[in-house]
Design a binder for these strands. Sequence first.
DNA 1: AAATAAATGCAACAATGTTGCGATTATTGT
DNA 2: ACAATAATCGCAACATTGTTGCATTTATTT
Lengths: 140, 140
Amino acid sequence: MLNQFHHTAEDMIRHNGGRATAGRIGILAILLAEQQAITHREIEQRLPQAQQLDRVTLYRALEWLVEKNLIHKVTSDDRAWRYHANRELHSHQHAHFKCTGCAQVICLDKLPVEANWPLPAGYRFQEIELTVKGLCANCC
Amino acid sequence: MLNQFHHTAEDMIRHNGGRATAGRIGILAILLAEQQAITHREIEQRLPQAQQLDRVTLYRALEWLVEKNLIHKVTSDDRAWRYHANRELHSHQHAHFKCTGCAQVICLDKLPVEANWPLPAGYRFQEIELTVKGLCANCC
DNA sequence: AAATAAATGCAACAATGTTGCGATTATTGT
DNA sequence: ACAATAATCGCAACATTGTTGCATTTATTT
């Protein structure tokens, strides 16, 4: 199961001209296997004991993966970034849902908001960051 | 000019049954005078030398003001909250704009998104947090 | 002016993230 | 398979933002 993701992860990394290190592969595999966007801390916890990474290495690997557009970063209100693998079905711009009960973050696939946002004169639009807050099925 | 705001600030605080301390009044006056949402740090810088507050006091005053609904907090991607005075024209829910050049944050008054968001079954909607990113007139 | 609850300031801590730099390792060319 | 090399890693130290506990001060009430 996870092996499958390991293989995919390694491919994705090599296709981007990066070194296929155990750390990067492990991290990306975890993010590919995960339905939700998870934090640095949660990634650490999911890494097998045998291959724990230094915190700095983890941050740098995540930074690299974001740069290469293999994963994306979600801003949240608890000052911790969450990460999620990029899949084709996700348009570059999509919304996120955060449960105010358990802090789980999932991606919502559509972003039903026009990019032509009514900004003040002279302002230029770049992107939208949208988080819907509420309670997930478990916390309801 | 700022005196005007001081007066208003004091009124707002007293109407909410809180103590009208120099710190609270000063902070709220600054936020009332400001067009944008500003950080803890920026508030500190705008406070006159004569009445600098302890960092903790500032945080607690802001917390109180948010609680009393006199100001609101804006989540951003740089892990720092920004604060802005509540005005009647702002509906409880509104969007924010953040300039990726100068990090300035302003409030956009409308939130043209229905509250009936298409969430997964069993999920309950609470609120929307929306930030539009781009360049402000100065940074364009 | 005294009593009292509310607000403040200090010290210490917590969480998240970053920088510099020497050590290690994946990859490439032979 | 081996050596060379640049990319990656790990450690230590630091930065930023925010929080907690507790003793002191202060705005308000009586």
